[in-house]
């Protein structure tokens, strides 16, 4: 009985493995969001010399659960003037693109179990990094649609600002990543990591790392580049009219994007799952996964640190900074890199 079932399923093993991986990634990402919010609130509290949430459970760890429950049971308000369909579509687009983007991120060496070679990724696409950029750029639609459908001038301003900002900084992001792609000679994220076995790219491309990090912060709409939701000017920007779970979905999208961006920086510049100074044993898949997670965690903490340290910059300065400083610097980096590649 069991044998015949196994025989029947044998040709579809890759489908089953893929589906299981997809479910694990989706659930893992969605459940890491409340923890990340907790981490951010705790760390921000410490950075600003206050306590942060510490009442619900040990270290305030019950706070994210209380918050999620509250958001689930809140009344969802849709104002009469809104375009209903787009109003519901926008948060879904944001979360969907955020999760799909992460599915392209490899986060460990492939390992063998039950005669099956299992890669630590959902999809290993040959032009992986291009796909990451492509799908994450689709995420802008969620924000623009939220701004358009809300029929509110603050929302509209937030949506417009966000699209202009993200298009501008995507250029820097791509140009900075091109330096890494050129020295690796591959668009496959796994091959990019494998090429950093001895030296991480941050030592070879320090300028590109800085540019990529700044552009990454702007891409994820995090402070000091959180112009789309500048509280003092725009109430809350594109999600002014959203409440309850739909508001929470925008939140989820933002935090998943933070994780994805940190993972991407780890893969491109910090050598992914290779550890350099401290040797880490493989142990099936735990060792590389641990190294990767620690790097991503540190980058996430730096993102939170940035938010609590820098004030928001003015919108015109944001654009000037992006187009007149970051883009020329990225092009310079690209030129210097190509000259070096030709010489050596």
């Amino acid at each position: 009985m069991i044998d015949s079932v196994i025989d029947f399923l044998a040709p579809y093993t890759f489908l089953i493995v893929g589906a299981v991986k997809a479910v694990i990634i989706a659930i893992g990402l969605l459940s890491s969001v409340p923890l990340l919010v907790w981490l951010e609130r705790r760390l921000m509290g410490r950075f600003q010399v206050r306590l942060g949430p510490n009442r619900v459970g040990p270290f305030g760890l019950g706070q994210p659960f209380a918050d999620s429950l509250k958001l689930l049971f809140k009344e969802s308000i849709v104002q009469n003037s809104a375009d209903k369909f787009l109003f519901y579509l926008a948060p879904a687009v944001v979360v969907f693109t955020a999760i799909v983007t992460f599915s392209l991120i490899p986060f460990g060496k492939p390992f063998e179990i039950f005669d099956q070679k299992i890669g630590m990724w959902v999809a290993n696409v040959n032009v992986g990094i291009l796909f990451v950029f492509a799908i994450s750029s689709m995420g802008i639609y969620g924000i623009v649609l939220a701004g358009l459908s809300s029929n509110n001038k603050y929302s509209l301003m937030g949506g417009l600002r966000s699209s202009a900002q993200m298009i501008s900084y995507e250029l820097t992001l791509g140009l900075a990543a091109l330096g890494v792609i050129m020295i690796t000679g591959s668009l496959n994220l796994q091959e990019i990591v494998d090429a950093q076995k001895t030296v991480p790219n941050i030592l070879l491309q320090p300028l590109a790392f800085v540019l990529f990090y700044i552009a990454g912060v702007a891409e994820t709409n995090r402070a000091p580049f959180d112009l789309p939701e500048a509280e003092q000017e725009l109430v809350a920007g594109f999600h002014t009219e959203y409440s309850g779970m739909k508001f929470a979905m925008f939140f989820m999208g933002e935090y998943i994007n933070m994780i994805t961006m940190s993972a991407l920086i780890t893969l491109l510049f910090l050598g992914g799952w290779h550890s350099y100074i401290i040797p880490v044993p493989d142990l099936l898949f735990i060792g590389p996964l641990l190294v990767f997670s620690v790097k991503v965690f540190i980058l996430l903490c730096i993102l939170i640190w940035l938010r609590s340290t820098f004030p928001r910059i003015r919108y015109d300065r944001l654009m000037t900074f992006g187009w007149k400083i970051l883009v020329p610097l990225a092009m310079l980096n690209l030129m210097v890199t190509s000259v070096f590649i030709v010489i050596f």
């Binding site: 040959n126 358009l148 202009a164 298009i167 995507e170």
Partner: peptide, 28 residues
């Protein structure tokens, strides 16, 4: 794969965002 990625980045990601941008500015 490459053409697919370029199709999304250039057309769906950049050009159409500008379309929506202009629609939002001019009023829909």
């Amino acid at each position: 794969e490459f053409i697919a990625a370029v199709q999304i980045i250039v057309y769906a990601g950049a050009v159409m965002i500008l379309f929506l941008f202009i629609i939002a500015l001019l009023g829909a």
